[in-house]
């Protein structure tokens, strides 16, 4: 019975995660359908190193458990069983064997930490991300207008007491180019997360964190704040728009002509004085 449930669950899991049909592409945040190198690496580590082996161990352990309970249940008139107190060899075996298996996990852990923790490449597009309750602001320090003002995309701030409406702030990036992001917050802790492109990194006030990622396919990718940040945490969304290099440049030129500050949607920008 329980084995059936587990197997069914496993099949459901695999089926759903591979396909995940039916999700709105603007809202899809499936970490198993990555479109960036970072997210792909994270998914592969997860499946190959842990989820796969864990599934095997799970099935074996549950099977042993169910077998033990059924096989050794007390039968009528059965005598008391032999009193086994332990077995040192077994103990050493099931201490050392798992320890070795687990120590192997250090490889992807450390390698992954180093790769994801490295500085962004020199030719990466630099973006400064600022989190604010409950919106995002994106600034491209290297893309400046005639007066030297950097291109800045202001998100719409939420109004406390009302759920946010409209389209969230858009971060435009060129496809297949590395993006080097620095993260800052002006109020509380947020977390910058675009599941299909890269895992999250917290946006901590008083501290600048940095990460890199890329998109390997043209498209728009949904993301949202992943650290509980108060009233409208659920609505603190963003969209990454990955475009071809030409489209991106055209977009940049268009925005810079428009006064240096792009706005997504209507309304007042979140950080009026930001981006000097």
């Amino acid at each position: 019975m329980r084995r059936l449930v587990s197997v069914a669950l496993l099949i459901a899991l695999v089926g759903l995660l591979i396909g995940c049909a039916g999700a709105d592409p603007d809202l899809d945040q499936n970490t198993f359908a990555p479109e960036g190198d970072v997210a792909r690496m994270q998914r592969d580590i997860l499946i190959v190193w842990v989820l796969g082996p864990a599934a095997v161990i799970f099935v074996v352990m549950q099977a042993l458990l169910i077998y033990a309970v059924i096989r050794f249940r007390r039968k009528k008139g059965q005598e008391l069983p032999r009193q086994v107190h332990g077995n040192n060899r077994l103990e050493y075996a099931w201490t050392i064997a798992p320890a070795i298996l687990l120590l192997m996990l250090i490889v992807p852990t450390v390698a992954g930490v180093i790769e994801l923790g490295r500085d962004a490449a020199d030719d990466a597009l630099r973006v400064r991300v600022v989190g604010q309750q409950f919106s995002w602001t994106f600034q491209y320090p290297d893309l400046t207008d005639a007066e030297g003002k950097p291109l800045t995309v202001f998100g719409l701030p939420g109004e406390v007491g009302k759920p946010s409406t409209g389209r969230p702030a858009e971060l435009h990036i060129p496809v297949d180019r590395e993006i080097g992001v620095t993260l800052e917050s002006v109020d509380v802790i947020h977390s910058f997360w675009v599941p299909k492109l890269a895992g999250k990194l917290d946006v901590v006030p008083g501290r600048t964190n940095s990460m890199w990622f890329n998109a390997t396919k043209i498209g728009s990718y949904s993301g949202q704040c992943a650290e509980f940040c108060g009233f409208q945490h659920a609505d603190m969304r963003l969209i990454v728009v990955a475009e071809s290099e030409e489209d991106f440049e055209a977009w940049v030129a268009d925005q810079l002509e428009g006064g240096g500050a792009a706005r997504s949607g209507a309304g007042e920008p979140a950080l009026v004085s930001y981006g000097e």
């Binding site: 994270q42 864990a54 799970f58 994801l116 999250k200």
Partner: peptide, 25 residues
């Protein structure tokens, strides 16, 4: 035991730092 096996295995899954950047929170 049955549920704790899952809890323990998911715990190991979370311990892997790079992939946990996705699962965290």
């Amino acid at each position: 035991i049955s549920m704790f096996v899952i809890g323990g295995l998911t715990g190991v899954i979370h311990s892997i730092v790079p992939s946990d950047y996705q699962q965290q929170d």
